[in-house]
Design a protein around this nucleic acid. Structure first.
Lengths: 335, 335
DNA sequence: GGCATATTATGAAACCTTTCACTGCCTGGG
DNA sequence: CCCAGGCAGTGAAAGGTTTCATAATATGCC
């Protein structure tokens, strides 16, 4: 009753063979205009809708790519997704957006799903773990690009230099006179977090500052509030004079707790975030943040993937690394 | 070389018929344990991965539902999506997240895609337009639920009472003594915007206040900044004393411009937003906002859809309407 | 007018899974 | 010892599309 109309029905109605219907659909220029018109009329009349499953079965792969992100509620990832979509749409591919929520089980689930769907390729910001199904996927020959994570030369990756990012943040704080600085972020096992911390430490060593690490369970707003509360309620002389947060959500959470406890930012505590999401500039105190080129990241990743999909034989893996900027706002320098 | 392993290969390796392999996959309890083990071993050995396209072709429909939202970068929609995912996962369905960006062409594109994919059903926050392909889709018998938009009894819908929301906002402002209030939002053709405005007007009439409408091109951060700039730079005596924004992104944009022009919130301008996204509380001045139950909205919508998918015959369409709350913060009442 | 070539159209085969009617065998009851 | 019934396993058919070798027809050239 519903989508039960097939090419066969269209062919019968139009009085042509089913091969011709297929040609009208896929290579219209090979069909005589009159015939084409007749077929199109039949399609319209019967309300024919292509069955994508049958197409895929025949083609052996689907016309979509998977994008697996760590946290769909983090604007960083939706901005990135927007970039991916632009490139993918240009290549006639659709994007299946999957949210692993930094959960290994869910990541596994989505990766299986994408393989079963014979996705053309996968873009992934992977969870941190010793061995990942990703290697197996690559061995199977499915194009895959790591996003926001660097890689060796056995696969493509697009990332931002988090070491530099960490340095930028701490150099800035040191230049403002801060010597007691906390790094807020976690889990430390996450490469992005580890690298930002490593960069921070390097800059601190150079500048003679001391970094203490406050590890969080995740990179969320809630985790930031938790740590913000802890910082706000600790004795003033034991408090750091500045914090560098591994992302803006954390920073916003910390900021909110400072405000709630009537502590001044940056007076009592300077705050530097990471990502420079749109909300950073709109925060209670506009947030100094290490800017990542979010959309470019997504666009570039998609371009690399598409290149590998389209020309698998000539494709050479590349590791693109962007450089972050520091955007200074009032959370470190009062207006 | 890659995913070319089929059930036939598995059957041959395990020394059974392909029907048995299928049984192991789908009804393992019907297969003798020894045989089952042999088949599973063969699957493992060969690295067999089910071909979802073939399954779908056979089944006639896919195991996924589509969720078409107006703006993926608006946290309102990602929160909603999170709710949808919870319910869908519970029913063994995956969610295909599509971002129409409030663009009719893209909406059409995604709706075609979902039909071609024979999605089990569709959840959609539709763009505003006189005639929509939605009616055609329903006629074809595909389950569909309107989200964040009310409907007549010919289909399910889940929405929040925007009239009440508008009233809550304006009643609050009037109770604080505001009489010159601007409504910022658009396009007015969007039902949500129109309803919030209608509610606002009703409350204004009741309270003897005057509402002027500042129509925006969309419900984005950028649009908010544009209007914020305009308000901030207009003469103080022509300025409203309060604005009610059709969503939080607009409100945050307006707020940011006020700060940039050194105008006090709420002193020079009180601001009320809508949605109460997480960032509202973290804003420069924490935002008073009309809270919508975002995740509940998503969960309920998915539940209704799933019910229609699972028991199409006994299903009765329902129109669920939630009531919004007002969350008062410093953007209207100084701490 | 005849032949070569270009243009259109044809339809069988292949893609991979699931289902279902069926066979063979075993067990237990009479 | 026979038979009914239950359990395992079988394999052909169906699902809708695309492709490709082939056939039929039209066109152009000498």
């Amino acid at each position: 009753m519903t989508g039960e109309v097939s090419v066969v029905d269209v062919a019968r109605t139009a009085g042509v063979s089913l091969g011709t219907v297929s040609n009208v659909l896929n290579r219209p220029e090979r069909v005589a205009p009159a015939t084409r018109a007749r077929v199109l009329a039949a399609i319209e009349e019967l309300g024919f809708i292509r069955n994508e499953a049958a197409r895929q079965l025949r083609a052996g792969r689907s016309r979509s790519i998977g994008l697996v992100v760590l946290d769909i509620r983090n604007p960083f990832f939706t901005d990135l997704a927007a970039g991916v979509e632009v490139s993918a749409a240009g290549a006639g591919l659709s994007v299946v957006l999957c949210n692993s929520g930094d959960d290994v089980t869910r990541e596994d689930h989505y990766l299986s799903l994408l393989q079963e769907q014979r996705a053309s390729g996968i873009l992934i910001t992977p969870t941190a773990r010793p061995t990942s199904p990703i290697e197996e996927i690559r061995r199977r020959g499915m194009p895959l690009v790591l996003v926001d994570r660097s890689s060796d030369d056995r696969q493509c990756s697009v990332s931002v230099d988090d070491l530099i990012g960490g340095e930028l943040a701490i150099d800035h704080l040191i230049s403002l006179g801060h010597q007691r600085i906390s790094f807020v972020g976690g889990p430390i096992s996450t490469p992005q977090v580890a690298d930002r911390l490593a960069g921070a430490r390097r800059a601190a060593r150079r500048g003679g500052a001391r970094i203490t690490v406050v590890e969080t369970a995740g990179l969320t707003f809630g985790a930031g509030r938790l740590m913000g509360e802890r910082i706000a309620t600790s004795a003033a002389r034991r408090r750091p004079t500045a914090v560098f947060c591994a992302n803006d959500l954390l920073a916003l959470g910390v900021l909110q707790e400072m405000t709630r406890h009537h502590l001044a930012v940056p007076g009592d505590l300077a705050i530097v975030g990471y990502d420079d999401i749109d909300f950073a500039a709109a925060a209670a105190v506009p947030l100094t943040s290490v800017r990542q080129p979010r959309e470019d990241l997504g666009r570039t990743a998609a371009d690399l993937l598409i290149e590998e999909v389209v020309s698998a034989d000539t494709h050479r893996h590349r590791q693109v690394v962007f450089e972050p900027d520091l955007v200074v706002r009032e959370s470190t320098v009062p207006a």
